[in-house]
Design a protein around this nucleic acid. Structure first.
Lengths: 147, 147
DNA sequence: TTACTTTACATGCATTCGCATATTTAGGAG
DNA sequence: CTCCTAAATATGCGAATGCATGTAAAGTAA
């Protein structure tokens, strides 16, 4: 009964997809933590801010670039702000809003995190794929990308 | 400079891999929640217990099958136990241990969750891949699987 | 036996998350 | 303008997580 077999294959593949992606992510996070560095979300947020520097981003713009709920991003920025890596400033054109700027300290943190982060990505991810496989996976992920 | 280009490709692929897997997982979890059902981890744990039923599993055995820290599994079992889906019993051969059994109510929850879960997997994952792509992705994930 | 190490699991505490809601301001409709 | 709705962000509170450590039983060595 091929239909059942396919259903099973697909469900098994789903389970494997989740397990592998979570395991790889956990391995990379563990490497960062072992190096005494902040979690990945900090790096991601700071990196998005560096992409637009010297401009800043409004919170909802940053949210669109990251995969974080509004309240979680609000508090992530709290932490980044308190730690001195970003600075919140009121938006002159919209009284509700704030613009978030990367600070010099934040830029330095990106640089400090990248060696450990890049090595971890290589060790747990990139090194396991050759060029052809990189392209294959990129195409498959494009198909899976939510609309 | 092909080396830099490859490094960039691989890092970009890493980012995409993480974003897509997290987005797909979040979409499936959201469907479950919208159906008023418990989170995926509950299903996963109960399913592992059903696989070995009528035998039970010790906590560390279940931990090896799932991607959960020891203390998180301990508390997940607390919740499943309090909700009546599993039952903890002392292990006669090892006074430190307990054996976790699936209850009838737990078996019923698996059955109740599967329609929503299966549909969500199909909608957010399986339906986006044809048979050939399923096989390709399976092979790639096998390469990425941590040792 | 005693003493030490390891394994299996639990738990106190601080951090983070999820949810609902509050707060402030924008942007209309009239 | 006034009233209403929607958008941008923050926050109180309960649940879940991470970390360190606790407890109790096994295993091991003498």
């Amino acid at each position: 009964m091929p239909i059942m077999a396919e259903t099973h294959d697909q469900t098994a593949l789903w389970a494997r997809f989740m397990r592998v992606s979570q395991a790889v992510l956990a391995a990379v996070e563990a490497d960062l933590k072992a190096a005494g560095l902040p979690p990945l979300a900090w790096y991601d947020a700071l990196l998005e801010l560096r992409r637009v520097a010297p401009e800043g981003l409004r919170q909802f713009e940053l949210q669109a670039k990251m995969l974080l709920a509004q309240y979680n991003l609000s508090r992530l920025i709290d932490r980044l702000d308190h730690a001195g890596y970003v600075r919140r400033t009121p938006c002159p054109e919209d009284g509700r809003a704030q613009i978030i700027y990367l600070t010099e300290k934040g830029r330095a943190l990106i640089d400090a995190m990248w060696p450990a982060y890049g090595s971890a990505i290589a060790a747990h991810f990139s090194d396991k794929l050759d060029d052809e496989e990189v392209q294959l996976l990129a195409d498959l992920l494009e198909k899976l990308r939510p609309v």
